[in-house]
């Protein structure tokens, strides 16, 4: 059935409307980063203004942007790699050798995400403090990995379930052990799914602020903690905060843009039979 011009118009308007709605806060943040503090709070808001770069130079010189960027990259990659290493065998076992507890186990794992993080702040803080992991990359990698693990396991489980069990069975008949099955059969077949899981984990870890703010001070502080340093109880700070936010989200936006095809391919993997 061919869509009528009116239907096409409605879809066009809705699509662009949704896209603009989502993009507007990001665009406004970038614009505000180029305003002076007084222009940033101007009422009515200014669309035409004299752009300046001093907020960006201030943020880079006064804050440790490169250090925070390095920490963000380290934490995001570390938590993702570690998470995949732990989740892949788990998802493999649950997808291909399910038992009566599998569904309950999966639901229990996901249910840990339903509790607000602040509910376990004190125990996690004390564990990190007693084991010397406060304000360390290792501590944050471990906490972030554990925080994202349920989602990684669930996603991988879903992707692995799409692979016919007969293929795994055939490879086993040919003498492939679990590691060889993962490497030769699962990785090529579920590659897009694993890649999109990794990308999602990187994005979630990059944007996580609660644990970063509470478990780091300076040595392991990532970009989310870096942004927070530019808010002030007394004094105008919107332009500098916007510049810091722009610098913080720029790497992950570029990364997301470069990998969008992979991300979409993975997320829709198996959606159409």
């Amino acid at each position: 059935m061919k869509a009528s011009p009116l239907q096409k118009l409605i879809v066009f308007v809705l699509g662009w409307g949704a896209a603009l709605l989502m993009f507007f806060p990001v665009a406004w943040m970038v614009l505000t980063g180029f305003k002076s503090e007084i222009d940033a709070v101007h009422s009515p808001p200014l669309l035409i203004f004299h752009p300046i770069l001093s907020n960006f130079t201030h943020v880079i010189h006064e804050g440790d942007y490169l250090g925070a960027l390095g920490n963000s990259v380290g934490i995001a990659l570390g938590a993702t790699v570690l998470g995949l290493l732990i989740a892949m065998p788990g998802a493999y076992a649950m997808a291909f050798f399910p038992n009566r507890w599998t569904k309950d186990l999966l639901l229990w794992m996901l249910s840990t995400k339903m509790m607000p993080a602040v509910g376990v702040l004190m125990p996690i803080y004390l564990i990190c403090q007693k084991s010397g992991l406060l304000d360390t990359l290792t501590g944050l990698v471990l906490v972030m990995m554990l925080s994202n693990l349920p989602i990684i396991v669930w996603m991988l489980y879903t992707f692995f379930k799409e692979i016919p069990g007969d293929i795994i069975e055939a490879s086993r008949m040919d003498g492939a052990g679990p590691l060889a099955q993962l490497r030769i059969v699962l990785l090529p077949l579920a590659g897009p799914g694993i890649a999109s899981t990794a990308l999602l984990s990187i994005i979630l870890t990059w944007n996580e602020a609660f644990w970063s703010l509470n478990l780091t001070s300076s040595n392991a502080a990532p970009l989310t903690a870096f942004i927070a340093t530019f808010s002030a109880p007394e004094g105008l700070f919107w332009a500098k905060l916007s510049a810091a936010s722009t610098l913080a989200v720029a790497p992950i936006l570029i990364f997301g843009w470069l990998t969008q095809r992979q991300l979409v391919r993975g997320l829709t993997f198996g959606a159409v039979k």
Partner: peptide, 25 residues
């Protein structure tokens, strides 16, 4: 070494650190 925090976060972090004898600050 500077740790710059939002006012309420600072209050919470410092309180936690002192109460648990963390010695971070």
């Amino acid at each position: 070494k500077w740790v710059v925090l939002e006012e309420n976060v600072l209050r919470q972090r410092v309180t936690t650190d002192i109460a648990t004898h963390g010695g971070q600050f």
